[in-house]
Design a protein around this nucleic acid. Structure first.
Length: 803
RNA sequence: GCCGGGGUGGCGGAAUGGCAGACGCUACGGACUUAAAAUCCGUUGGGCUAAGCGCCCGUGAGGGUUCGAGUCCCUCCCCCGGCACCA
C-alpha cells in the first residue's frame, strides 16, 4: 500500500470540508448548542509562530468532539486588527494601515487553514471593518448616554524625541520602546469609562462562572476589594475635617498622626492657615516631578513635610495629632488621606521613625519600639480606652457601632480598580463618535451616522502637542453640532485596542447583521460562550473589560446573560528550542508553515497537544515532532492489518473501553497529552496482539480524529467505512468493561514491594493470600518473622506487616 | 513584601494515599542494508551484585501522620507568573 502522504491527504480533505461546508455552523436552533471561543489574534506582519496553534488546536479538539456528540457548534475566528504595529509601519512606509492589515490577515488565514482548524470562516470578523466598528462605536454611545463615559485629566507617557504618546506596553525600562529616550509624563484630558461602578458585580459574579482558579484569583486581586470604614478627623479651629479610609478602625487609639497626599485638596482650601506654605509647595512640586517609575521604585524611603498650622483631633480620645504631607499616600485610592498607626503598619512605622513621631501599641503581641507589629488579624486590644482587653474582631464591631452613633464614621468598601482610560492619541483605532460644541458641550453623533469612519490621511505622524494625527485633518475635525447646528469639532482621540475585543464574541453569533450588533434570537441561543480559552496575559484587562461591557449590555437589555463566558481556561506559552521566549531577535522562532510542509498538519496538531502540560510553558522540540510523525506513520500502517469484525475482540475489549473513557475525559480537562499517550499505548497493545478488527479500528479513528482529522478521515474512507468520520457519533464505553478481571498487583512486606501476583478482581482475601504466600520472594522476605497485620486492597496492593 | 503555580530520569512529562518514572524524545546495542537513512527488536534513574534471582538508595531539604507518602500535615530552600507604598 502507498505510504502516508500527508501533503495530498491534507489538501484533499481541506478541500472536501470547504466544498461541503462541513464545519459551517447550523442555523437550527432546536439543537443543543456549544460555543467554543479562542482569542482572536492581532494579525502581525510576522505571521503565525508555533505558539498560536496551541490554544486553537485545543478548542478545535473540543469542538470536533462536541459535533460528534450531536451539538450545534459555533467555533469562529477573526482579527483584532487595530493597533500600533500597523500604524508604526504606516509612519515609516506611508502605506495605509488597512492595506497592511489586509495583507497580514490573508497570510494568517492561509496559515490557519493549512492546519485544518474547523472554524466557520463564514463568520469571520475584523475589528477594523466599518460594519464591525459601527457597533463598537454604538456601544460607546450607549455608555456615554448612560453617563458611564466622562472626560478627565490623566497622565500619558510621552516620548519627547518621537513626539508621541506611548501605551504602557511601549514603555520599556522607563524609556521609549522605539528610540530609548526617557519617557515623561504629560497630562491630557481623556475619555474614561466607569468600570469601577461595576467593581462589586465583577467580583461577586466570579462565583457564578467556571474559570480556572488562578484566573479568578488574579481578577479578585486586580479589583482589590477591601472592607473598612471612613472616619472623620476634625481639623482644630476650623470647620474642615479630613476623612480617612481605614480597614482597621479598631486601631484608632494608635493613630498618632495623619498623612495626606501631595495632591490633597485641603492643601488648597486651608492654604491660608498653613504656616509653612513654601515648604509644602516645594514638596508638592518635588512629588509631581517624580515619574510613575520613580514612585513605583522599590526604594521606598519615606519623605514628607509636617504641615504647620493644621492640627487634627483623634475622634476617639480627642488628642491633638499632627498632619503631614507625604507621597506614600496616594490620591487615587481611598480619600487621599490616612490615619497613621505606626505601631501596626510597616509604612507608618518607617515614617514615624524617620520623623521621630510617637508610636503606640494597640494590639498586644510585638515590640513596637523595634518594628511594626503586623500580625494583627487576631490579638487583644491595649492602650485603647473603651476597647481595652477586647479581641480584634469584637473591637472592630464595637468601634464601628460607636463611630456610627457619634456620626464620626461609616462602613465603607474600597477598590484598587481604577476607571478605564479609553482615549488613545493615535490614528489606527475606532474614532470616538462625539463632537464638542461651544454651547452644548460634548454631544453624541446621531446613530444613523455610524460608522464614523477614519479620514484618509497621508501622514500618520502625531502632532507636537501629543494630539492624535486626526487633529490635523481639519475638514474631518470641523463639523456641526447635531443638537444646535452650530460649529463643533470632532473628538480626535481614538479607542484603545481593548474596545473591539470587548464584544467580538457577540458579533460571531450574527456577523452580518445591519440592524443590531447581533439579533436577539442569535444572542439568546448562543450566549454565553460555553468555553473560552486564552492566554494568562489577558486575564486581568481583556477579561475584565469584556465582562464589564457585557454587564452593561445586559443592563440595557441587549444581551441575555450577565456574564459573557461560562468557562475560561488558559494555556502556557511555547518557548524556543533553547528554552527562551520565541522572538525574532532571539532567532528561535519556529514557523508552523515549515513544520506543516515537512511533517504535515496532523503531526503538528498532535505535537502541539502532546508537547506537555497544556497549562504550562514548554520548549519546542523538533525531535518530539518526529515522534508524533512516527506514531501517525504507524497508524497509517494499521490499515493493512484490519480484519473484519463488528464487536471488540476479547484481547482488546477492556483496553478499548479504558481508552475511550480516558480520552473522552482527558480531552475535556485540558489533558490532551495524556489522552494522546493513551492512544499510543493502545496502538502498542494492538501491535502486540498483531491484528485489529473493524470495530476496534473505527473506535480508534474516532478517538484520534479531533487531534489529527485529515489522516483519520482518509483512513476511514480507505477502509470503506460508512459516511464521513466527522459525522459519526462519539464512541461510548461501558464502565464494567473497563475493568480487567485479572490483574497483577504488588505485594509489599512492611511497605516495601517484594513481588507481585496475578489475582482475579473478585478473589477474596483468603484466595489472594494463598497466591501471595505461594510466591517465593514473599516467603523469603517473611521467613522467621511474625505476621502482625495484612492489608488487602483489591486491585491495588497486598501489604504484609511483619515483626 | 503580598498573592498564585511549581520543584519527579539526560529532556518533555505520567501517577483517585496503593508496584514512582506511563507515553514520547535522546542515547546505546542488535536486525535489515554493499553502506547509510528509514523501519523493526531490545536496553536506558543511581548504586551493589556470585550475572541467577536479588539487595540498597531515590520525587528540592528536614521533620511528622499512616500498614503504606511524589501525593496529606509542619518548618525551610529554590524557580516561574502576577501585583506592588492600595491605608
Amino acid at each position: 500500500m502507498a505510504r502516508y502522504n500527508h501533503r495530498d491527504i491534507e489538501k484533499k480533505w481541506q478541500e472536501i470540508w470547504e466544498t461541503k461546508e462541513t464545519f459551517k455552523t447550523s442555523e437550527d436552533h432546536s439543537k443543543p448548542k456549544f460555543y467554543a471561543l479562542v482569542e482572536f489574534p492581532y494579525p502581525s506582519g510576522d505571521g503565525l509562530h508555533v505558539g498560536h496553534p496551541r490554544p486553537y488546536t485545543a478548542l478545535d479538539v473540543v469542538a470536533r468532539k462536541r459535533r460528534m456528540e450531536g451539538y450545534n457548534v459555533l467555533f469562529p475566528m477573526g482579527w483584532d486588527a487595530f493597533g500600533l504595529p500597523a500604524e508604526n509601519y504606516a509612519i515609516q512606509t506611508k502605506i495605509h494601515p488597512s492595506v497592511v492589515t489586509e495583507r497580514n490577515v490573508a497570510r494568517f488565514k492561509e496559515q490557519m487553514q493549512s492546519l485544518g482548524f474547523s472554524f466557520d470562516w463564514s463568520r469571520e470578523v475584523n475589528t477594523t471593518d466599518p460594519n464591525y466598528f459601527k457597533w463598537t462605536q454604538w456601544i460607546f454611545l450607549k455608555l456615554f448616554e448612560k453617563g458611564l463615559a466622562y472626560k478627565k485629566e490623566m497622565p500619558i507617557n510621552w516620548c519627547p524625541r518621537c513626539k508621541i504618546g506611548l501605551a504602557n506596553e511601549e514603555v520599556v525600562d522607563d524609556g521609549c520602546e522605539r528610540c530609548g529616550h526617557a519617557v515623561e509624563t504629560r497630562v491630557k484630558n481623556q475619555w474614561m469609562l466607569k468600570i469601577t461602578e461595576y467593581a462589586e458585580r465583577l467580583i461577586n459574579d466570579l462565583d457564578t462562572v467556571d474559570y480556572i482558579e488562578r484566573v479568578k484569583i488574579q481578577q479578585r486581586n486586580w479589583i482589590g476589594r477591601s472592607e473598612g470604614a471612613d472616619v472623620i478627623f476634625k481639623i482644630k479651629d476650623t470647620e474642615e475635617s479630613l476623612t480617612v479610609f481605614t480597614t482597621r478602625p479598631d486601631t484608632l487609639f494608635g493613630a498618632t498622626y495623619m498623612v495626606i497626599s501631595p495632591e490633597h485638596p485641603v492643601l488648597e482650601t486651608l492654604q491660608d492657615r498653613i504656616e509653612n506654605v513654601l515648604a509644602v509647595k516645594a514638596y508638592q512640586e518635588e512629588a509631581r516631578k517624580k515619574s510613575e517609575f520613580e514612585r513605583a521604585e522599590l526604594n521606598h524611603d519615606k519623605t514628607g513635610v509636617k504641615i504647620d498650622g493644621l492640627v487634627a483631633i483623634n475622634p476617639v480620645n480627642n488628642e491633638e495629632i499632627t498632619i503631614w504631607v507625604s507621597d506614600y499616600v496616594l490620591m487615587s485610592y481611598g480619600t487621599g488621606a490616612i490615619m497613621a498607626v505606626p505601631g501596626h503598619d510597616q509604612r507608618d512605622w518607617e515614617f514615624a521613625k524617620t520623623f521621630g513621631l510617637p508610636i503606640i501599641e494597640v494590639v498586644s503581641g510585638g515590640d513596637v519600639t523595634e518594628a511594626a507589629y503586623t500580625q494583627t488579624e487576631t490579638g487583644t486590644m491595649v492602650n485603647s480606652g473603651f476597647l481595652n482587653d477586647l479581641d480584634v474582631d469584637s473591637a472592630k464591631e464595637k468601634i464601628t457601632t460607636w463611630l456610627r452613633e457619634q456620626g464620626l464614621g461609616t462602613p465603607k468598601i474600597n477598590y484598587k480598580l481604577r476607571d478605564w482610560v479609553f482615549s488613545r492619541q493615535r490614528y489606527w483605532g475606532e474614532p470616538i463618535p462625539l463632537v464638542h460644541c461651544e454651547t452644548c458641550g460634548w454631544v453624541a453623533i446621531p446613530e444613523e451616522e455610524l460608522p464614523l469612519r477614519l479620514p484618509e490621511v497621508v501622514n500618520y505622524e502625531p502632532t507636537d502637542t501629543g494630539e492624535s494625527p486626526l487633529a490635523k485633518i481639519r475638514d474631518w475635525v470641523e463639523t456641526t453640532c447635531p443638537t444646535c447646528g452650530g460649529p463643533a469639532e470632532r473628538e480626535t482621540d481614538t479607542m484603545p485596542q481593548w474596545a473591539g475585543s470587548s464584544w467580538y464574541f457577540l458579533r460571531y453569533t450574527d456577523p452580518h447583521n445591519d440592524e443590531a450588533l447581533a439579533s436577539k434570537e442569535h444572542l439568546d441561543y448562543w450566549m454565553p460562550v460555553d468555553w473560552y480559552n486564552g492566554g494568562m496575559e489577558h486575564t486581568t484587562l481583556h477579561l475584565l473589560y469584556s465582562r464589564f461591557w457585557h454587564k452593561f449590555l445586559y443592563d440595557i437589555g441587549v444581551v441575555p446573560s450577565p456574564e459573557p463566558y461560562q468557562k475560561r481556561t488558559s494555556h502556557g506559552m511555547i518557548l524556543g528550542e533553547n528554552n527562551e521566549k520565541m522572538s525574532k531577535s532571539r532567532g528561535n522562532v519556529v514557523n508552523p508553515d515549515d513544520v506543516v510542509a515537512e511533517y504535515g498538519a496532523d503531526t503538528v496538531r498532535m505535537y502541539e497537544m502532546f508537547i506537555g502540560d497544556f497549562e504550562k510553558s514548554v520548549p519546542w522540540s523538533t525531535d518530539g515532532v518526529r515522534g508524533c510523525k512516527r506514531f501517525l506513520d504507524r497508524v497509517w500502517k494499521l490499515k493493512d492489518s484490519v480484519k473484519p469484525g463488528d464487536t471488540y475482540t476479547e484481547a482488546l475489549e477492556a483496553k478499548i473501553h479504558q481508552t475511550i473513557k480516558k480520552v473522552s475525559h482527558d480531552y475535556e480537562s485540558l489533558k490532551f497529552n495524556t489522552a494522546i499517550a493513551a492512544l499510543m499505548t493502545l496502538l502498542n497493545d494492538v501491535n502486540q496482539v498483531g491484528t485489529i478488527n473493524e470495530a476496534e479500528m473505527k473506535t480508534f479513528l474516532m478517538l484520534l480524529n479531533p487531534v489529527s482529522p485529515h489522516l483519520t478521515e482518509e483512513l476511514w474512507e480507505k477502509l470503506g467505512f460508512e459516511g464521513m468520520l466527522n459525522e459519526q457519533s462519539w464512541p461510548s464505553f461501558d464502565e464494567e468493561k473497563t475493568i480487567a478481571q485479572t490483574i497483577a498487583i504488588g505485594v509489599q512486606v512492611n511497605g516495601k514491594v517484594r513481588g507481585d501476583v496475578t489475582v482475579n478482581l473478585d478473589d477474596s482475601q483468603d484466595v489472594a493470600r494463598e497466591k501471595v504466600m505461594a510466591n517465593e520472594n514473599i516467603q523469603r522476605a517473611i521467613a522467621g518473622k511474625t505476621i502482625v497485620k495484612e492489608i488487602y486492597v483489591p486491585g491495588r496492593i497486598y501489604n504484609i506487616v511483619v515483626k
